[in-house]
Amino acid sequence: MSSTVSLEQTGRIAGKAQTAGKRRERMGPLARRRERWFYLMISPWIVGFILFSGGPIIASAAISFTRWSLVQSPDWIALGNYTYALFEDDLFWKVIKNTIYYSLGSVPSGLVVAFALALLLNEKVRGINFFRTIFFLPSVVSGVGVILLFGWIFNPRFGLINGMLARVGIKGPGWLYDPHWAMPVLIILSLYGVGGTMLIYLAGLQGVPQELYEAAEMDGAGTWARFRHITVPVLSPVTFLLLVTGIIGTFQVFTPAYVLTNGGPEFSTTTIGLSIYFNAFQYNKMGYAASQAWLLFATILVLTLVQFRLSKRWVHYEQEDRVK
């Protein structure tokens, strides 16, 4: 894969993890020095984790085993919240379904759109800065006003979309007010926010060594072949990052649905992020909210671990390839 080949590869410890015991035996002074450096350099995160994240996370786990309205002291009810969510609360399963729908709908399409835009925006044409800005614009602005604005385009009566559909003789659906169309609208709105993803791809594209393309061109590879065999694999670590964080992000999605539909109509856009918020801050059920959060956490964790397992088949790291 790599055009640059190292002279001494063996014995080097690369990104891939090996079992501690084995490594320890053949650890030279160099490796031990690196290990010290490893801990030293990740120490800010470790300290931060202990100080700022660990406590609240453990606390939220503890809360999930209680009934707690925030005012009085929490009651320990063991797995009560979990059994209620899984076996009694009909809404919970609908919420899970909605969340998966949203995630499946927006992550892959978002990656494809972002990748395509990044390829386009990597072209050296006049005014490219201007176009980059346009596609990044929705990611720059935040807040309720802008989400309302996007929702306005999908207004069934005066919105732009139905206006255009009417012109070609199609009667547009009720979009955000139709239980079948509300979620697709939220997914389409999520595509407005691909600017960030696009930018990370763009940065990745800038990092693809030109020698690879030059070498491939000399070998007679066409545009498609170069794209397929150089661009895609070299960017696979980026894709992996965006896939993992995209799934985490979409599973927690909250603001657009909160602003535009408040979970409706008929709970068709109540995602788990929304459900957690409602339970925690409107229904005074902090314990139940926490248990939903931990069920969500468990789901994401499993998904992420599966992705890491699968990633070995399709993600190519420069460093690892050379160790093989």
């Binding site: 984790f49 809360i63 992020g273 957690i276």
Partner: peptide, 29 residues
């Protein structure tokens, strides 16, 4: 990315895991 140490995989998973807990429930703690 470039160094190694015991428990690296565990620590990295832990790091990712902190992203997975929704803010709504860690807000109060």
């Amino acid at each position: 990315a470039s160094l190694n140490g015991r428990g690296k995989n565990f620590l990295f998973t832990l790091l990712l895991a902190t992203m997975m807990v929704p803010g709504a429930v860690t807000l109060i703690p």
